[in-house]
């Protein structure tokens, strides 16, 4: 072990930092997916597409601003703007004109509808942005690097991924927890999640809450995507792998768990980056191995509460 660490310590440190950065992004998507499922009872297969579209939109806007001669910090603004624009256009449109028609339907039809949406959005990306990789690394190079101490060594790592991304994810986590517990709207969302019938019977306008929650989830996913844009060049298929990955996080953590989702995202993110570093063949497999292993032991997820079927 000691000798292995001597040789691979720096690599391991790098893998951990990679993992933290990617966990921050996965968390942004997974937490929205979770929230939307809790309120609407629809697990939106197209949720990963918000991530992908947010990423492309941020890249386009960022590149446009840069070519217009704006200073480098404007690219951070582009990220935020792209996420909000993407989420607030697609989210309400989809909830209003599509999902609203199928709330009363069998769940298999709801699933098929969001799957159809996913297919449509996947190709919409290809039509809008082409299939060539798009790269937008302005924010990463702008923010430079920091030296991260690790096991008596120092690893230089880019500030954007190791400071900014985790900070935003943490802010989202704390902000969301406070929002759900301290504000009226937040409590109404929790109430609808816990018992939809009772909540609507008490006069809560479910339609408004659905719209709000879905749009909010879409913005979070798009923000995750927009933030990911500078860290890797964008290619088609991001939406598919994102939804499967964030589903893995939600399932492993347990439905309805927000803090749990954060921890699980960290676990899966690090698991994956360690695999990338040491056994690249296993990269894609690791998140699912973690998920399957957890679900075999705890079908309700790590932090989930077992639910008995009602009779």
């Amino acid at each position: 072990m000691g000798e292995w660490f001597e040789q691979n310590g720096a690599l391991l440190g790098l893998a951990l930092l990679d993992g933290i950065a990617s966990a921050a992004l996965i968390f942004m998507v997974a937490v929205g997916l979770n929230l939307v499922f809790g309120v609407l009872r629809v697990l939106n297969v197209a949720h990963g597409s918000f991530f992908a579209i947010g990423a492309y939109a941020a890249a386009s806007l960022g590149l446009f601003l840069a070519s217009a001669g704006l200073p480098a910090w404007a690219s951070l603004l582009a990220i935020l703007l792209a996420a909000v624009l993407t989420g607030l256009t697609l989210g309400p449109l989809i909830e209003r004109f599509l999902l609203r028609r199928i709330y009363a339907e069998e769940s298999v039809l709801q699933l098929l509808v969001t799957f159809a949406l996913f297919m449509i959005l996947e190709d919409a990306q290809k039509l809008l942005w082409g299939v060539q990789p798009v790269s937008f690394s302005g924010p990463v190079s702008m923010m430079g690097t920091v030296d991260v101490p690790f096991a008596g060594d120092v690893i230089p790592y880019n500030t954007y991924q190791v400071i900014l991304l985790p900070a935003i994810a943490l802010l989202t986590l704390v902000g969301l927890a406070l929002f759900l517990r301290r504000t009226l709207t937040g409590r109404v969302i929790v109430a609808v999640t816990l018992d939809r019938e009772a909540a609507t019977a008490m006069g809560i306008d479910a339609g408004r809450i659905y719209l709000l929650t879905f749009a909010f989830g879409a913005v979070l996913a798009a923000l995750g995507g927009a933030l990911s844009a500078p860290t890797a060049s964008l290619v088609p298929g991001v939406g598919a792998s994102t939804i499967v990955l964030s589903f893995a996080v939600v399932a492993t953590a347990g439905l309805g768990q927000i803090e749990g989702a954060a921890l699980t995202a960290l676990m899966i993110g690090i698991g994956r980056s360690v695999a990338v570093t040491f056994e690249p063949e296993l990269e894609v497999v690791v998140p699912y191995l973690i998920m399957v292993a957890v679900l075999l032991v705890r079908p309700q997820g790590l932090f989930g509460v077992p639910e008995t079927r009602r009779i």
């Binding site: 297969v45 298999v108 699933l111 598919a240 792998s241 690249p280 497999v285 699912y288 679900l295 079908p299």
Partner: peptide
């Protein structure tokens, strides 16, 4: 053991694993 979205997505996840195994090995 799972229903609905879990059933659908677990199948999706496992098939994606198999896909990447075919691709990577």
């Amino acid at each position: 053991r799972y229903r609905e979205i879990f059933f659908g997505m677990l199948n999706l996840a496992l098939s994606m694993v198999f896909y990447s195994v075919l691709e990577k090995l």
